[in-house]
Design a binder for these strands. Structure first.
Lengths: 344, 344
DNA sequence: GCGCTTCGACGAAGCGCTTCGACAACCACA
DNA sequence: TGTGGTTGTCGAAGCGCTTCGTCGAAGCGC
């Protein structure tokens, strides 16, 4: 491998001039720059990453800390990771994967102290998250994907659950639905401090109430069978049910199955809208699910951009970003059977 | 951050002794080692990653090159990536993500020349793959996930499609099935040099033929609708059809739907076995699909181990590994209606 | 008690780059 | 013609570690 000194010698300039030409940190005359570039091309010069980091005391690596055990949504995570890696690369950074569980906060900090990563993206943060607390205390640049309870001075990006729930209710209400139930993640996920479960619950309740509608929400395990049971429960509780919003992909399949078993048509009798959905999953249902797609890619992009700005400026003025889900029409939502005028 | 010199001073030894104590490269007496360790703990010393790479001329980073556009479901890929990252970490390496398309082989090489990564894992290799060719020529350590046409001296790990197809046929034949069709990926994927399509086709044909059975294979686009059409086609071509092996997840859902539409029961009338399946997908069908799960995690593990051995030894003696899929029982396979004695 | 090996520790020379201070050379202006 | 401010370039001092050559001290056999 050619070194910068080789380039300098060939271009008949000093080593530092080559460095300045490369970084643009100081002015270099056009003629000199040309000679240097020619030399670099001739030698196939590529600056050594380690030497660069060492001398400049900064790394061009961003770390993505994600929990070893994934919660269901493989697809959204894949979109997120892919997008984050791409955006990082566009900005001259590399994305490394750190599979750590929440309890391994100390190890994350060790790696940061090694200068391995310039900043850390923490996925799937819990309401109270040791990793975030330690990063904050250490002063290392980081950005959360999700939100802890404490938010003061902590940069984050998250799905806009409130807005998504509201959009979902709005969409169904516009189609004349009045009896709209909500099927959420499991009770257990809430107990473990999994924030989306809370936020969606709240968002749904608010969205319903402000439209004069009565919220009917149930929690449900992440299996089709649990979904079937939940669907039965909902129908028993509210026979006039005409639409279900779900935020639980496996269970959604059970809901569809249970409705069909009871001779109810989807969407003619009951509409189903799956929110915060993974890509592709809707197509596996018959008819294909109408969904509100989780913004995995946008979250990845925003997360990286946020982190880069924290790295550059310390803490940005507006550290937070909320990204809503976007509607993807499928075949499981239709106008309510006997549309009545909207109340609002 | 404390440096090695700080540790040395505190422990009253020379800098190099600290280094040797840390790496074990040269013997250090127990007493000295203890003083050094105490000093390191007291100072919270973490060796600087960049300085280490620079001085030792080796990086502790492995790169995973994957195509920007993913084919089908993210689930298997997610399992692969997660597993690779974990295994890498267990061996003191970091996994970075390089989202490059096949045409960006040159950029991959540039990054390797920067010393960014000690080795490269190339996912989703095509039968003729520029990235692999360039890596091979450059002498950089790499391992393919999948196989190019040319294999000489090229380390790889891959799914054992032949074995998986054979296992699938065997499993169904043992249950008395004789008319077993195969639904593969699209014709187009084959035309683009996507090797799994070929390999599974061949494996299936060989498996059928050696059992005295007649292969009936169709290719099919990656959508439920294409799957419905393919199912119709298969039933028309072979009315005695009692089982379908599929290697096309979206289409599989169409197959199930089409069979059910025709009043055929799955699995009582027709069994369905989805091979090389992504995790979780089977549960979204009703009844849940019987699948042969793609060994994403094992592939990730083996890929990293292979790559590490290439980095250490130049080229390992046995550079290749084949990993079969594993059966996961669901509810879409049952004994054939009128079981006849097996022919073999 | 001698020379021999072995063990443990040291000092110094880099690894390839960034960055600071210095300084000619050149310009414009008076 | 001198002054002061640019502009472009250079040399050298690190960044924090690995690793090579070296060497004193201790241990060994005879």
């Amino acid at each position: 491998m050619a070194t910068m000194q080789d380039v300098a010698t060939l271009a008949k300039v000093s080593l530092s001039t080559v460095s300045y030409a490369l970084s643009g940190t100081r002015p270099v005359s056009a003629a000199t720059r040309e000679r240097i570039e020619a030399a670099m091309t001739e030698l196939g010069f590529q600056p050594n990453a380690a030497a660069r980091s060492l001398a400049s005391r900064r790394s061009n690596v961003l770390a993505l800390v994600y929990p070893a055990v994934e919660r269901g949504l493989g697809g959204t995570v894949a979109e997120f990771v892919d997008s984050a890696a791409q955006v990082a690369r566009e900005h001259g950074y590399h994305l490394v994967l750190w599979p750590f569980r929440t309890s391994q906060a100390e190890e994350i900090l060790d790696l940061v102290r090694q200068g391995m990563a310039a900043g850390v993206l923490v996925m799937d943060v819990a309401l109270d998250d040791d990793r975030v607390r330690m990063l904050q205390e250490s002063g290392a640049p980081y950005t959360m994907i999700g939100r802890t309870r404490e938010l003061e001075g902590r940069p984050w990006v998250d799905i806009d659950f409130e807005r998504t729930a509201d959009d979902a209710v709005q969409y169904l209400a516009d189609l004349g639905h009045r009896h709209i139930a909500f099927l959420n993640h499991s009770e257990q996920s809430a107990a473990e401090g999994y924030a989306p479960t809370f936020r969606a619950d709240d968002g749904y309740a608010v969205a319903m109430t402000r439209r004069g509608l009565t919220p009917v929400a149930v929690h449900c395990g992440e299996t089709p069978n649990a979904g079937r049971a939940a669907a039965a429960e909902l129908l028993d509780a509210e026979p006039r049910l005409s639409a279900v919003i779900t935020m639980n992909e496996y269970a959604t399949f059970g809901v569809v199955a249970e409705l069909q078993r009871r001779g109810l048509s989807v969407p003619d009798d009951v509409s189903i809208l799956s929110i915060v959905s993974s890509p592709g999953v809707g197509e596996m249902s018959n008819p294909p699910l109408t969904t509100m797609h989780a913004p995995g890619a946008e979250l990845g992009r925003q997360g990286v951009l946020r982190l880069l700005s924290v790295i550059a400026d310390g803490t940005p003025d507006l550290p937070q970003v909320l990204v809503p889900c976007s509607l993807e029409e499928g075949g499981t939502v239709s106008r309510a059977r006997s549309p009545r005028p909207a109340l609002d």
